[in-house]
Write a protein that binds this DNA or RNA. Structure first.
Lengths: 183, 183
DNA sequence: AAGCGCATGTAATTTGTTACATGATTAT
DNA sequence: ATAATCATGTAACAAATTACATGCGCTT
């Protein structure tokens, strides 16, 4: 599974506490891997116990106190192994496509509004990504790290673009049928 | 929670037994919603118990015997309600994008080969979809059902196209620096 | 009758989600 | 001091994955 590896990647980029990780998984990191704070705390516990990470001993480690983690060599090795291993793409599972297919048998009531709402959400997300691209990835990208991170962001941008295009088609298809099917 | 609704949709399109459903979720239906036979049998049990579907009483219903299910009015109503309700897009979670991000911190060993493998898989999938499109959706699409189902297939086609384009970019980015090792 | 594949399930484990609990810090 | 908020967790549950179990029917 990928959650522990997502956490290892995030911690390698920057050692963090549980809440800081949660924030990062809600923002930039969440563009390709999302996680809730409950998942994160549980997984941090497992990773610490297995020796992949450790809490920085600086502050007083009590409940309600901040606790920063860093990756240990074992954790980095594990991540490197996972990142280079073969893994098949996961099976498709998209609720919106399913709902359109369901609408084909039970009717399209409410569907156009829902499609429009999703379209607006994806347009907003695309704007957000493009803002990040302008800010963080100016034309002269030099380091390998930058190139790879930019590539991941491009994935997000092009995925949002896909959805916007598809939703636009979908709205034409669904809306265009109340009158005559003018194509 | 979409699995029960996926099953209701599939059964409305055509009443089936558990194994037939499994087959359909491995083929065309699986293009937008995948499920294993264990999930399907468990869910069929729940749906039958809740009165959303029923087993056709035709054949002898014993273990190892085929058992066909059909959707009852309650199930169809439930599906219609679900299909028209509002649901936010689910949070992004893509292992391959994560692996590229991980490669940015632990190195790109093995990555190009993996990207090429995925590229080949997506190219094959795209060909498959395009074959289905040619076969099942000739230019003169008439019924609303056909238009909606074609729309769902277009979603699959354009998603595969997205992956192929992104993976091609990714290979240019990663291969363009190969051999240099550390940075 | 032995073996094989088909069809239907059970069980165990892991992952993800939702709701709640508790200590510490800061503002009023 | 009280309340609000931050930070870290626990508990309960739902969903998905993996592995295993059982009965039937057909072939050899």
């Amino acid at each position: 599974m990928s959650l522990p590896h997502a956490i290892l990647t995030a911690l390698l980029e920057k050692p963090s506490s549980g809440l800081e990780l949660t924030r990062r998984f809600d923002k930039s990191f969440g563009f390709f891997w999302s996680a809730t704070h409950q998942q994160i705390y549980r997984e941090l516990g497992k990773l610490e116990q297995s020796g992949a990470i450790r809490a920085l001993p600086s502050e007083t480690p009590a409940r309600g106190q901040k606790k920063e983690y860093e990756v240990l060599p074992a954790g980095q090795a594990e991540l490197a192994a996972w990142a280079s291993a073969g893994q098949d793409p996961r099976a498709m599972r998209d609720p919106l496509l399913l709902r359109v297919r369901a609408a084909a048998v039970v009717g399209t009531a409410g569907l156009p509004a829902e499609l429009r709402r999703h379209l607006a959400l994806h347009e907003r997300q695309l704007e957000l990504y493009e803002g990040i691209e302008r800010r963080d990835f100016p034309p002269e990208r030099d380091s390998e790290q930058d190139r790879l991170r930019h590539l991941v962001l491009r994935g997000g941008i092009e995925l949002e673009t896909f959805w916007i295009r598809w939703l636009t088609q979908a709205l034409e298809t669904v809306d265009g049928e109340s009158g005559t099917g003018a194509e």
